[in-house]
Design a binder for these strands. Structure first.
Lengths: 212, 212, 212, 212
DNA sequence: GATGAATGAGCTTTCATTCAT
DNA sequence: GATGAATGAAAGCTCATTCAT
């Protein structure tokens, strides 16, 4: 996984042959991995630094604090999901097509950013009362992501395409089904491949478990 | 032991006559509450002991360690869900009726043991690599719970009632949908009332989001 | 030096023969000594704990933080000086007699609490911008101590006994002369003996350096 | 080098033409200011460098260490006081006139180098056992300053002009009175103006507090 | 001359756990 | 059964200093 932030532009890198490592990026990668494996609390700066091949002090040269890094990582990830989904929605199409796009983007996200999803599920669905600021940090973004989808469901209901249930409930069914399927595989150490499950997921979500 | 939610703090209790407080139970209640609020790591023995109205040393007189208590709480809860579900399944009925029973028991569990569900979601869906033993502790129980349901789905597929998809996937859709809907409400501080959502959930799971 | 706070009352001590050490008191003594030698910043909890013969954790069992202990020590000391001075003033007498009492109490304080005076001079006359709360902590006490003396000087001026200068300036002359003489000796490792200097100090303060 | 007080921060300077900023001097100014505000320990190289508008590395290009800079600053200041006092003494006059000169120079010094005085009081009267070398650094200079004044007092005593007390004690009374009055004002954020207090100080020191 | 990334020793503080009473 | 003082390993973080460029 590699959503590196502030990656140096190509021409800033020196010495093509020589492996000029960007310290900040290495920290990002290792932190993401370790946060996703251990959660925020059990991850230690010492381990992140060790794995990144730097001294503890170097970590603090690049980041103000453990929380700051974590929050940063969190926001980066959610922004990617949001952006992708918005872009997909703007392509237009029927309600069902757009719903499929939302589902598809979510599946792609789980596939492409498995480490990040682990991390987010570890800490955000996790200890609710966590450093409460995370709640605050997330709420706006979460809404920005959810509202358009709810709107889409409403649109479908007006057209008589979507069942007349609470849009929020429908939304949660979509998110819950996809994330549970994806995270179960990811937590079990399997690599999540959306191709294997996407048609099944669409089937279940659209038409339910029962035949007819 | 019973998972009482919102158990009164020690000092709120009235000791009329010789109504003895069972120390162990008081610890259970407070630990459950605090674990569910803060997660395993952020909960401290000190706080649990304080809230239970006992000395820190007393905690260690009753429990070997923080983890032991946590694991105990964990198992108690899962056993309740398992037992209830098994009992419900043994009542027999058509596949759909039994599936409805499974869903119903799950909803009841989320409703009756909200604190416990918070706790479990805080730490088990949480930091995956947690004290790795939890994984080991859970796997057997989880399987004992999941297998009969998978078997039920298979039975339905053989009868042509349930769509021809991976039973595991179907199972995860059920679990994911229900838990997400329930936990969203619980984490948002609302009291989860299964009556309000159970028919909608059944509708979505059985027939999907789309009309026809 | 031994202004122990919360010292156990006699009957709380167990085992007369056996040396039952009061941990909190030992920490007080060592902290006072080390703060006075090194100042707040250069003193470390590790050293205080070591010298007190306890583990680092034990320090934090008894005190919330390094600052808290320091502030506590600070207040204890100033209260002693204040109380002694007030008591002396309440005995009444002529203005000169009362002024002599104030001077005498100050000298006694420097003599009896040399460690504390070192500490206070190390940090309070010291880094002005220190954890600013100290300023706040001290101002009220300082005023409570200074005001009665200023009032005394004013009384003397009304009676035509004390020279017509700013009372604040006169007060500072008294404090500065005494503290400089005392601290010079204390910092130079000599034991400060007020008997040796008190008559000289009174002479200088009352009649000046010059003859006639 | 000159101890300019309230030197403008780097970024406030206007570089018109090729008016070169002497890096070393800028560091001096900012270090003096910050040391005087925070004391040696609480001042950081980072802040000094920031305020001087240079990189941290640049600091170490100009100075061997934090202590070295501090000691240098210390010596510069004391030399100024010493030189001024020596010069004033060499002008001759009666004992009283020369004593007035000493007092006057001291007052001028407090007025002209308030930042430096803050600094010196922050750290030298401060944590006594400080990097013990400071003691060693200072003793010679201190003696070079004090001895002539003590000699002057002795001369006055031989002439029957100065009261027959320990010259050291008299000296400390002078230093203590002046420095306490000056520092009280400086620490309280007022600008110290020697004109306002010099006649009062002379009165107190020469003739005491009491009338007649 | 100047830079800033990197370092590591050292600091304060937390907390699960032990144990004598 | 119950207590609470004591412990020490480990964590997050700071900062003077170095050094390749």
């Amino acid at each position: 996984m590699h959503y590196s932030v502030n990656a140096p532009r190509r021409d800033e890198r020196v010495k093509d042959g020589d492996e000029k490592v960007n310290t900040k990026e290495v920290i990002f990668e290792q932190a993401l991995r370790i946060f996703s494996e251990k959660g925020f609390e059990r991850a230690t700066i010492e381990e992140i630094a060790d794995q990144a091949g730097i001294a503890k002090g170097t970590f603090y040269y690049h980041f103000k604090s453990k929380s700051e890094l974590f929050e940063f990582l969190l926001q980066q990830g959610t922004h990617i999901l949001m952006d992708n989904t918005m872009t997909a929605l703007q392509k237009g199409g029927t309600v069902v097509e757009r719903l499929e796009a939302v589902i598809n983007e979510l599946l792609s996200f789980f596939q492409d950013y498995q480490e990040f999803c682990r991390m987010i599920f570890s800490e955000i669905l996790g200890p609710a009362a966590a450093p409460t600021r995370w709640e605050e940090i997330f709420k706006p973004d979460r809404q920005k992501y959810l509202l358009p989808v709810i709107e889409l469901i409403r649109e479908g209901q007006e057209q008589g395409i979507i069942r007349n249930i609470s849009p929020q409930t429908a939304l949660q069914a979509i998110l819950g089904t996809i994330s549970t399927i994806a995270m179960t595989q990811i937590f079990h150490g399997e690599h999540f491949d959306k191709m294997k499950v996407s048609s099944q997921i669409r089937e279940i979500l659209f038409h339910g478990i029962l035949v007819a």
